[in-house]
Amino acid sequence: MDSPAIATGNGEVLAEAHAHPAHLRHHFETVEQQRDAASFGMWLFLLTEVMFFGGMFMAYLVYRNWYHPAFVAGCNTLNIWLGTINTVVLICSSLTMAMAVYSAEMRRKKSLITYLILTIVLGIAFLGIKSVEYAEKFELHHVPGASFSIEQFVHPTNPKAVALAPDMAEKTQVYFSLYFAMTGMHALHMIIGITILLILVVRAFGGAYTDGHMTTIENFGLYWHFVDIIWIFLFPLLYLISRYR
């Protein structure tokens, strides 16, 4: 949103018409209008994201009501410790992101870069832990599709687990379908976020965002917190359904 090279093509006319502050794109009247528009646009985009994930939450709501025992059984196979650690990691990454926005506001280039890199590290840590969890699912044949096995739900090895009738045990596949779809889409958003963070770091090295023009950092912060909030909903819904007492 801040390289004027592409969108002009009318530079000469504008130069004649009026001069304006750096970073103010020609079609905006004031810097405030430009910043308002950008943040309004970002909030609208997040609204579309809510609707995007909303489809899956809707499916979750329906199937959890229908197949509650299967969802409980599926939930109990998840590694609650890895899930909790990941939640902490993600909340910390939101903190570092917020600190990055603050640093940009205070025009501290060094701390901006540090916090952005910390955010990247925490994001990658989250994905790393997530991939350990995914690998576990492959070993246990809990990945939906041809290799899926209900064996562990019909004849559980864990003494605390309740054995399910084969009919209900089949439905655990719906649980794992939603588990992979929801966490997968969330992870995809994380990957996109980390990619954008890398670009932001490179630009921040060049001195961007600490010169009073920090709309991009602010708006990316909104995105990062949003992805975090999605996880805050996913964690209880997927990991904390009636755990063994």
Binding site: A59, Y63, P144, K171, L178
Partner: peptide, 14 residues
């Protein structure tokens, strides 16, 4: 592609 079962009645989907 990977055979998840959200809409597949044989897996419990609707």
């Amino acid at each position: 592609t990977i055979g998840i079962g959200v809409f597949d009645p044989t897996k419990g989907g609707d």
